[in-house]
């Protein structure tokens, strides 16, 4: 009997690994720094993690279909570069949706190639897109730092009901993604395609369309992540979004989304993203000087 109980315990631990890791990390840092476990610091962590979380939510859709998107960091940079260089004078209500649309369109390019070039791994397609898009953004900015104008900067400082703007944005994307994945036919089809694309085709699901759509969503979320990030930091250097794909994928995977498709979801992803930021924040707090930031 104890064997079964032990196995069940192991299963519970494995299934809740991100949550447990999160708690362990909290306890360690709380015991190392008394400033760590404060509401202010926690808000800080969530705010800082929001852009990663939003992008990771987008990539969760792609991972659920057993795909991958390495171009998110580059999409992020392209969106912000266009915003800063060409859309700076427009009101935010116009420029932000435009940038989001650009992200969607770039995701659509990924999706187009993934669907059209069967047998070519999304890894390669999106790796190529990474270089091309980063090059395009560097061309636009002439590799110089770009700045966003006042209305966007002040947006970064705005709070509503005491909660920073970035967290609202994060919450909205999360809620929407959660509903889409759980409660819409499309969301359930994403899971079906990730589990078994052949069976999904037999069940009458339009598999290419589902694949195309998840890359569009991923591109959209990458652009949104860029907007949230630029509103916080106000300026984007030539390394903006560079190698962002790694923490973004890591957040989703830490949160329990399988790279083989069909398993996982956005709740875990959110935990994964906050976990990564918590570690980083905790290291700073406990004076481990982190030169290197993702």
């Amino acid at each position: 009997m104890s064997g079964t109980a032990g196995r069940r315990l192991a299963l519970v631990v494995l299934q809740n690994a991100p949550l447990i890791a999160f708690v362990v990390v909290l306890v360690i840092f709380a015991s190392l720094s008394d400033r760590f476990l404060t509401l202010g610091n926690f808000t800080n962590i969530v705010t800082q993690s929001s852009h990663i979380a939003i992008m990771a939510i987008g990539i969760t859709f792609v991972l659920l279909t057993a795909g991958i998107d390495l171009s998110v960091g580059a999409v992020m940079y392209v969106g912000v570069a266009i915003l800063a260089l060409y859309l700076g004078d427009l009101p935010v209500v116009v420029s932000f949706p435009l940038v989001a649309l650009i992200g969607l369109a770039l995701g659509a390019v990924n999706g187009f190639f993934v669907v059209q070039m069967r047998g070519l791994h999304p890894f390669i397609i999106t790796l190529a897109m990474l270089f091309i898009l980063r090059g395009a953004a560097l061309w636009m900015t002439d590799t110089r730092m770009v700045f966003v104008a006042e209305p966007i900067m002040s947006l970064g400082r705005t709070s509503y009901l005491g909660v920073p703007w970035a967290i609202w944005m994060f919450a909205a994307v999360f809620a929407l993604a959660w509903i889409v994945l759980r409660e819409t036919p499309f969301g359930r089809q994403v899971y079906a395609v990730g589990q078994d694309p052949v069976a999904a085709g037999k069940a009458g699901i339009n598999v290419p369309l589902v694949l195309f759509a998840v890359y569009c969503i991923c591109g959209l979320c990458a652009a949104l992540g860029g907007l949230v990030s630029i509103a916080q930091v106000a300026a984007a250097s030539s390394t903006f979004g560079f190698q962002k794909e790694f923490p973004v994928i890591a957040a989703a995977v830490l949160g329990g989304t399988s790279l083989f498709g069909g398993r996982g979801g956005v709740i875990g992803t959110v935990f994964g993203a906050i976990l990564i930021q918590t570690v980083e924040n905790g290291l700073v707090m406990t004076n481990a000087n982190l030169h290197h930031r993702w």
């Binding site: 036919p185 359930r188 089809q189 899971y191 079906a192 990730g194 589990q195 078994d196 069976a199 999904a200 069940a203 009458g204 699901i205 069909g262 398993r263």
Partner: peptide, 14 residues
């Protein structure tokens, strides 16, 4: 699809 519920499997096509 093992990762979906019974009801979802039955209605996945529509």
């Amino acid at each position: 699809f093992e990762n979906l519920s019974i009801e979802e499997n039955i209605f996945i096509s529509g």
